[in-house]
Nucleic acid binder design. Structure first.
Lengths: 231, 231
DNA sequence: CTTCGAGGTTTTATCGAAATTTCATGTGCG
DNA sequence: CGCACATGAAATTTCGATAAAACCTCGAAG
């Protein structure tokens, strides 16, 4: 039932995986800014590990696209420019729309029911922990993730789903980088509901269009803020 | 001063990258069969490197999906079952068709010309080095790669293109794993020409259909052979 | 005959130090 | 005054060794 994920060190089987998780979280949350030099010695000291696990974690991050490797010059946090955000959004729209269309074409009754359930749970969870000020609700975030995964789940292409997850994480990084926590004047719940309805109606064209708008809208907000805030 | 190492070392900046390249080639070519246990000590000896670069190479391979990591149990070559090939083909069709449609929508004159050139060069290169028996021609392979890249180049989504490259490599592995070197009764040149023509005519629907058939046909051949040969 | 457990062996994960490369600073010459 | 070069320092990469974990074998009990 309840997941005690806070004690990552205790659950992670090796030091390298623990360090990898913490480092990734620090990059995704923006604590480590884009372009930041990642010096092995300093990191090893601050994370309480040797050079070997740290190097392995960095290598993994580089493969995921969250860090860049410069031969003989170590690692740095991956750049995050508006131009790259543009390519990211475009990739997400193309890939997720294609996956959604295929899901609609192939999905069976079980998929429909799972999607319905995911949308219901997302609706029931509060988006913010505080009604007046936006405070991220981990439960809503988890439901949000599962909803979007449920949309694509029936496409029958596991590598593609894994790629979608990767892009989602990278997008999350940009969201954290911008100061835009909430998007005023937007009813995301309604957007999700509309996407779910079109999908369950097997209206591929409409569902894909709505999903594309869903991502492009968020991208526009974040991109504008990223350009203003400077990065 | 003294360059006693092999020529590949001379181009690779570090031992880890050199080992990574060689190891990847050995997996893609099928020299290391799926599921094969990758023991650190044996690998280090046969590749002439220490444990650290080897571990880093394996870590990178695992991130690319060519190797699997089992915590506290080392690495093994990624599995390659018909079911996974199915997901791979489906991913390629979905992603590449979406990218191609977008390329057709956004492509400018320079893109058209580059595609035309790539198709011309592919046509001019001989598919086999021997007219009677199939012997892979590296030049044709390179032109083939560039042709398919040229098709999608204008989609404006770099992460998606990188993903396409990754899937292409994985597909190449299955091709090498099967004993099917040539596909008799198939005119691939004609298929490529048809795809190029439809693309240059900006006929997205037809181009995408042809591209999908192009991949599904190859997948069917390889899959059938993989099922027969056993894996 | 099967199942369970203890001990030894193999393999991985990690640490600390040496070797190689790059970057920065200062010096000499044109 | 500017540029090329040499030198020193810092960082990365690599190696060898140690510690920890998992696998295998073997034997005994149910």
């Amino acid at each position: 039932m309840s997941q005690t994920a806070s004690f990552s060190d205790a659950r992670d089987p090796t030091l390298a995986t623990a360090v990898h998780r913490r480092l990734r979280e620090d990059i995704l949350s923006g604590r480590l800014p884009p372009g930041q030099k990642l010096k092995l010695r300093d990191l090893a000291e601050s994370y309480g590990a040797g050079a070997s696990p740290m190097r392995e974690a960095l290598s993994k991050l580089a493969a995921e696209g969250l860090a860049e490797r410069l031969e003989h010059r170590g690692f740095r946090v991956a750049a995050a420019a508006p131009a790259q955000l543009d390519g990211l959004i475009r990739s997400r729209v193309l890939v997720e729309c294609a996956a959604l269309r295929e899901s609609i074409r192939r999905g069976d009754a079980a998929w429909e029911e799972a999607l319905l359930l995911a949308e219901h749970r997302l609706n029931r969870a509060a988006r913010s922990l505080d009604p007046h000020r936006f405070v991220a609700n981990p439960e809503w975030e988890a439901c949000h993730l599962r909803f979007h995964q449920a949309l694509l789940a029936a496409c029958g292409a596991p590598p593609l789903l894994a790629f979608c997850d990767r892009l989602r994480e990278e997008a999350r990084r940009y969201r954290a980088l911008s100061n835009t926590l909430a998007y005023p004047g937007r009813d995301v719940a309604a957007e999700h509901a509309a996407i779910a309805r079109a999908t369950l109606d097997r209206n591929a064209e409409k569902a894909a269009t709505l999903l594309a708008q869903h991502y492009e809208r968020t991208g526009a907000f974040v991109g504008a803020d990223l350009g203003r805030g400077g990065a």
